[in-house]
Design a protein around this nucleic acid. Structure first.
Lengths: 205, 205
DNA sequence: TTGTAATCGTTACAAATTTCACGATTTTTA
DNA sequence: TAAAAATCGTGAAATTTGTAACGATTACAA
């Protein structure tokens, strides 16, 4: 299995999203050129990315939407559901729990945790909110893959430590703080202020 | 003014965040090595990024936290407040309206818009929710820089068109759909499913 | 059946980004 | 005062990423 370059992965997920939308519209085929117009990337890049996954297109026609979707899925989607847990049932945490886009993807939030006793015990969008103390136990019991940090930044590190201690290997961190993590744990930081300010810089150049 | 490479901008914003935190702890100086340990980047990359902004460090000492902060600010933060508007006052929109990290940065949401008459008229965290029809008028009146899309994906494009029509030059798009935008409008897409799935791929490699 | 147009896949090329290596500078210490 | 230690800044090398060019392939039309 060919090694896939770091940046092609999110692009491939984007192709998948696009293909699913085209399939829903009833489209049977699509060319790299059209995918380029839709996604804002270039046709060459799309062909090159797809060539990682084998010779799958047909000259003069393009790609069969369903076939390409299935091939890409093999590389970037897991066979089973990805189980996630969420820390922090504030407004951001609640928004994540209610996010409708996870259902189609194979993403599922198994449990949520919060420090605040007024929030624990509730169920938000079908997900139970436990007190943080129960996190290690609940995580171990249900084979969780990814943890989400949606707590105030001053508690980010302690929550991260708790996750690492419970065996999680992937963290998505919405708290605007740099986490100190062991080598074998992957993280993805989403700092809204940085996203917005970076966009602002883009508009000025 | 030297041209700053695309990827150094978000890193510079990260340095700024880190410096502000160090300053709050009372630190006067910091070395590239320590910034590297905190942020997870390498010391060379940090020195090289900073060298874009002039010779500001002192050998054997490192960087003065306040001085470096002020210099970086000049390059990546605007003089004035950045005004933003939000489309979609659902749970994600509400979370963005309540996001506490914007206050320290120079980011301010001036107004929100929603289609749903049950949501309009309210005020969420001090921000008034208007019916979408009033968007062009409100945007023009208050010199807005950036628009945020937090509506269901099937309405993403129409909202984007409305934003472009109202003169916005930057869009942050949380809807999992590719927007068709004119050349002169910058966009940043944040698709939560893609973020989570990409992280999952990272954990498997 | 042959020619033509559209599109893919791939090799070579270019650009951007990161890493390396090391000289220069400054503080501290002997 | 001279040597040592720590750190910066930077040109060059290496790597990664993206782009261009173009031959190969296929469907379709004449």
């Amino acid at each position: 299995m060919k090694k896939i370059s770091r940046r092609t992965i999110p692009r491939t997920l984007l192709y998948l999203r696009t293909l699913e939308s085209l399939i829903k519209e009833g489209r049977y085929t699509v060319s790299s050129g059209e995918l380029a117009r839709i996604t804002g990337l270039t046709d060459v890049q799309i062909r090159k990315d797809i060539s990682n996954f084998g010779r799958v297109g047909t000259p003069r026609i393009g790609y069969k939407t369903r076939e390409l979707k299935n091939i890409l899925k093999d590389y970037v989607l897991p066979e089973n559901i990805i189980r996630m847990v969420l820390f922090g049932a504030g407004s951001l945490g609640t928004a994540i729990l209610k996010y409708p886009g996870f259902r189609k993807q194979r993403l599922k939030i198994s449990a949520a945790f919060d420090k605040d006793k007024r929030k624990t015990g509730k169920t938000i969008n079908g997900v139970k909110v436990y007190p943080v103390e129960r996190a290690p136990e609940v995580i171990r019991k249900s084979r969780v893959d990814i943890g989400i940090i949606a707590v105030p930044s001053e508690h980010g590190q302690e929550v991260a430590d708790l996750m690492v201690g419970s065996g999680l290997k992937g963290i998505v961190n919405f708290a605007p703080v740099s986490l100190n993590l062991p080598e074998n744990v992957s993280a993805r930081d989403i700092d809204l202020s940085i996203e917005f300010l970076a966009l602002y810089c883009d508009t000025r150049m």
